[in-house]
Nucleic acid binder design. Sequence first.
DNA 1: ATCGATTTGTTAGTAATACTATCATTTGTA
DNA 2: TACAAATGATAGTATTACTAACAAATCGAT
Lengths: 226, 226
Amino acid sequence: MEVLLKFKLNEHLYLRDPEQTAIGKAIVSNAIELIFEIGFEQFTFKKLASRINSTEPTIYRYFTSKYKLLTYILNWYWTYLEYVCKMHLVEVNDPTKKMILILEIITHHINHHTQLHDYNLDHLHLIVISESSKSYLVKEVDEINNDMMFAPLKSLCLFISEVILKLEPHFPYPRSLASTLLETAHNQHFFSEHLPKLTDNASRENHKDYVLKYLTRLTFYTVKPA
Amino acid sequence: MEVLLKFKLNEHLYLRDPEQTAIGKAIVSNAIELIFEIGFEQFTFKKLASRINSTEPTIYRYFTSKYKLLTYILNWYWTYLEYVCKMHLVEVNDPTKKMILILEIITHHINHHTQLHDYNLDHLHLIVISESSKSYLVKEVDEINNDMMFAPLKSLCLFISEVILKLEPHFPYPRSLASTLLETAHNQHFFSEHLPKLTDNASRENHKDYVLKYLTRLTFYTVKPA
DNA sequence: ATCGATTTGTTAGTAATACTATCATTTGTA
DNA sequence: TACAAATGATAGTATTACTAACAAATCGAT
């Protein structure tokens, strides 16, 4: 039996569902690799087309723009992350242990690289770190949001906030802390790697370990009552 | 006597110093307005040129690209913010009061809109919220950093980290907390306004007040010893 | 007030980007 | 085998991100 993770994502994200065809899957997985290699600004459909031995119009038949494709990839990631969190937390009862697991998952300490999918998760993680904010930091954010295109991120955030509330039922900022942890996981990793003066990681390495320790302090001190 | 704030910024940021000429100042102040109005993605030198009744080549004689111009604007902002922090903190001795003032300044609660400069600070604040991460979340971050183009942000971060250490001398993450506070001030403001499900501000308004309260909790709980 | 240097304006041009249209070909499916 | 759907090939447009070349305006020092 072959098990394969497939997430049916919001239909506004694509014209043709890329999960349904070989070329669609090639578009997404090669987009991840290409954005990883050259960054989102340099990434074009023309370059992607030539990488998969296809043509621009074919890619446009799946995605209307590179922003939509990026948002699709990010939505896949958020959906995947929530799935992994739920998998790991299902048999854990202690809220503290739950929270630690969540921090380990969002900093990519837990090996969730089972081959249940077609994408390179290490590269995807680095894309999320560098590019995820570009999907919502745009003038069109409200229309995009109306089309539910950030639903997976909101859902993950809600899930984490519920664990935070189990930890401390009267904590007044569970959602903000959840979104802060997700965002901070990204920017502290990026800073640790590229702008280390903005962090306290003097080692110039072990970015994931550093971020996990910092987030652990941030979380458990912030939530506990005075 | 006329007092005017002028910051001499890193020379790698421009070809010709925009503070030195009327057209240079027009480029920067109108760039702030135009980016505020249409966002950085839609912003072009051509549109900016027509807004100041000039031409593209003139702007290119000051800035080599719109990214450099954005980085210039952000550097002006970080330099300005550190200046304002130092102004307000100079006669305050209590570290807790210092820290509260810093949080008020970075969330734009303190009226630092004295007309000592040519720029619209409210618009600049909103640009910083939406666009600042785009200056460093690029593939060229390491070369840009080598040219000291993030020095003002690092300097501000260091300044805040020193106040954090006065609050709690053995706190192990003063720089990370400082950079987290700056980044979180932006993204929670943005979320509160555009993606409120990622926050606990149900009011759909008073974003600055909400962010200040949240950051206050985050800061003082995180730094204090267990 | 004049000369020379610097800055700006004008015009034009290029390569690349972000698409779209059209039609031929291939493929998968009933 | 036939038909629809997907893909490929080709071409084209408007815009963007620049650069070149030269003329006009301005500014500073004498």
